[in-house]
């Protein structure tokens, strides 16, 4: 299980959190539809370090940016977004 160090709550078990999407998949309101579609429907899907949006769903409910390695599951940083 991942141990995610929430800046508000401290280290908590991954089962309290929900993954949402990678940062590059956040659609900006100003985007033209074709860019929004590409943003939402294609992913780099890296076998490497990845910047991800997580939600401390069963905790403080903060949205977090987690920098995580997708092979080793190592977490480099967690910050509120």
């Amino acid at each position: 299980m991942l141990l995610i160090d929430c800046p508000h709550c401290g280290p908590r078990a991954q089962s309290e959190f929900a993954y949402d999407r990678t940062l590059d998949a956040i659609v900006q309101l100003a985007m033209v539809p074709s860019d929004a579609m590409t943003t939402l429907y294609t992913r780099a899907n890296p076998r490497d370090w990845s910047d991800e949006l997580w939600h401390h769903r069963s905790g403080c409910r903060t949205w977090l940016v987690v920098r995580r390695q997708t092979v080793t599951h190592a977490i480099e940083s967690v910050r509120a977004c």
Partner: peptide
């Protein structure tokens, strides 16, 4: 499961997440 990394070798991003 490796569709993403292999397609990336050709510069292609896919509607797939591992």
């Amino acid at each position: 499961g490796n569709s993403g990394p292999v397609a990336a070798l050709a510069g292609i991003e896919l509607p797939i997440e591992a």
